[in-house]
């Protein structure tokens, strides 16, 4: 259910075509048991648009050529990023943050990392689209890409998971693999962006249905494993109000 300024919204008139991601999200929000609270209609609209851009950024990243590589073997375009000894990427001094994020999408084949870092890249790209270059570059002067570590305080919430029963396009979700083969710890789970319509983007598996992701994880379990990989009932969401306030 949607609550704006403490009022339950039962009939939301919106201009979104019913096939858009925004319309899908609204429908799920209205029908779900979870409360989605907003201080104003503008914040809700901002969230809908940013979620749509997260979905778009995820689909584009899936087609960017970005490789799946473990942190120890991670690679990046050294013109824009500096690889750390841990395997993360730090924005090079003097490089525009917007240019560095765009380069990952343009020259994906020059980059390789694990699934969580790919999620962080998706969020940055979506924010770049909604903020525009100037505001984005002012807001994210330093970027350190490495799973949920070293997150910018403005994006801290994307590293925090919460139980939910209403999954929305643009959510970051997780498939866990409790009996993972110890030889492939990178497959202890798969981070994914909910794209809507039962599809997910997970770095390494691409765009797939939940069953395909679970099958891939199950193929990487230890001998004698008894537990299947499964979709966790948790989601991570940016603090949309905080991100909205940066724009206004």
């Amino acid at each position: 259910m949607i609550i704006i300024s403490n009022r339950l919204i039962t009939d939301f008139q919106n201009g979104y075509n019913e096939h858009t991601v925004q319309a899908q999200i609204l429908k799920l929000m209205m029908e779900g048991r979870e409360e989605f609270r907003y201080p104003s209609l503008q914040v809700l609209e901002f969230e809908l648009n940013l979620r749509n851009l997260i979905v778009e950024a995820a689909v584009k990243l899936a087609h960017s050529g970005l490789r799946f590589l473990i942190f120890r073997e991670s690679v990046c375009n050294e013109q824009y990023w500096q690889r750390t000894s841990e395997g993360g990427f730090v924005l090079r001094e003097g490089v525009m943050p917007s240019e560095a994020i765009k380069d990952i999408y343009k020259n994906g084949h020059l980059y390789g990392t694990e699934c969580a870092t790919a999620m962080v890249i998706v969020y940055y790209k979506a924010l770049l689209e909604i903020y525009g270059e100037q505001l984005f570059n002012r807001s994210f002067v330093r970027i350190h890409l490495m799973n949920w570590h070293y997150l910018d305080p403005k994006l801290r919430e994307i590293g925090q998971i919460h139980k939910t029963s209403t999954f929305l396009p643009g959510d970051r979700v997780y498939f866990t693999n409790p009996d993972v083969d110890p030889k492939t710890p990178e497959l202890q789970g798969e981070n994914a962006i909910d794209l809507g319509g039962g599809l997910y983007y997970g770095h390494g598996v691409g765009i797939a249905r939940a069953e395909a992701i679970i099958n891939m994880l199950n193929q990487n379990r230890m001998p004698g494993a008894t537990r299947s990989a499964y979709f966790m009932d948790v989601a991570a969401r940016p603090d949309f109000t905080k991100l909205y306030n940066i724009m206004h």
């Binding site: 949920w148 570590h149 925090q160 866990t176 202890q188």
Partner: peptide, 10 residues
Amino acid sequence: GDFCQQLTSN
């Protein structure tokens, strides 16, 4: 429990 840094920052 597990300490899964792939899943969450905390």
